[in-house]
Amino acid sequence: MTTSRPDPLAATRAWVETFVVARDVCPFAGREVARGSIRTVAVPALDREAALLALFDECRHLEATPEVETTLLVLTEGLEDFDDYLDLLEIAEALLAEQGYEGTFQLASFHPDYVFADAEPDDPANFTNRSPFPMWHLLREAGLERALAHHPNPEGIPERNIAAMRELGHATLARVLAALRGTD
């Protein structure tokens, strides 16, 4: 039996609600989900230049729309290979700085095959940055700074998440992500 690929935006929203918020991976996401201030945009990345232009369209959208706190740019096709994704991410981050957005916006990166530089591929800790589809999370730095200022232990968030992911284990986390991607 073949299953059809889920809608990348619906899968991403489900991941945010059932994984990121439900497991408190990002202690600030629940508030933004409740406020409806997360924008989710599909961006095909077969044309790298067009994907980068979409990133800057979203920067301008955030500048013009203060009620939107953050944008998830779901890279729907063209960046399935993690190394290709990292190459374009590096360019995107350099262009953000070059275009004067450093200090205003930053990118958080997510990919189904995300592996931290110092981690083994099967380390459950990688799931803190694994998402159903490749994604750039465009964040307002001011909003992030406000949220961090009100958190009792912002420095402890990564360690807490790593411990939680390792407790769940690679097999469980892989099943959750596969279900969201429609590949289980």
Rank of each mutant, 00 (worst) to 15 (best):
L62Y: 01
L72K: 02
R175I: 03
T70S: 12
A50K: 07
N126K: 03
Y101N: 06
T18V: 00
L55I: 08
A171K: 09
E77F: 07
A64T: 10
T2E: 15
R160P: 02
L62G: 03
E77K: 11
A94M: 04
A179N: 12
V43F: 06
A50E: 04
N161M: 04
L79P: 02
V20R: 03
A10P: 02
N161A: 02
R181Y: 10
R35Y: 04
A11W: 11
A14R: 14
A42T: 10
P121M: 09
A164E: 14
S131G: 04
R13Q: 14
L168E: 06
R13L: 12
E90M: 12
L168K: 14
F82Y: 15
A29H: 07
R31L: 15
D184Y: 05
I162A: 13
E167C: 06
A97Y: 06
R60H: 12
R60M: 03
G100V: 10
E155Q: 15
P121T: 11
V43K: 01
V33P: 13
E67P: 01
N161D: 01
S37I: 00
A174E: 07
L177K: 03
L53K: 14
N153E: 11
P121F: 09
E141I: 02
G36E: 11
S37Q: 06
D47N: 14
L46G: 13
A97R: 12
P6A: 11
A22D: 14
T12M: 15
L173Y: 00
P152M: 08
W15I: 00
A108P: 11
V115E: 14
R60Y: 02
L148C: 07
A174G: 00
E69D: 15
G30K: 02
S37P: 05
A119S: 13
N126R: 03
L168G: 08
P154W: 06
A51M: 04
L53P: 00
Y114E: 09
A92V: 00
M135D: 03
E69F: 01
Y114N: 05
L139I: 12
S4C: 04
L96P: 09
R39P: 02
L89Y: 05
P124D: 11
Y101F: 12
E141V: 05
E80A: 12
E58V: 01
V16Y: 04
R140N: 04
T104R: 13
V16F: 12
A11T: 07
M1Q: 04
T172C: 07
L138R: 04
R175T: 08
E80W: 00
P132I: 09
V21I: 03
S37Y: 13
E67D: 15
D83I: 13
V43L: 05
L55Y: 05
D87S: 12
D81Y: 06
A92R: 03
L177Q: 10
D84F: 03
R60N: 05
T104H: 07
E49N: 05
P132F: 13
C59E: 06
E69K: 10
G36I: 04
C26G: 10
R160V: 01
T65R: 08
F105C: 02
N153T: 10
F133M: 13
L148V: 14
F105I: 01
R5K: 13
T2W: 11
D7E: 08
R175P: 00
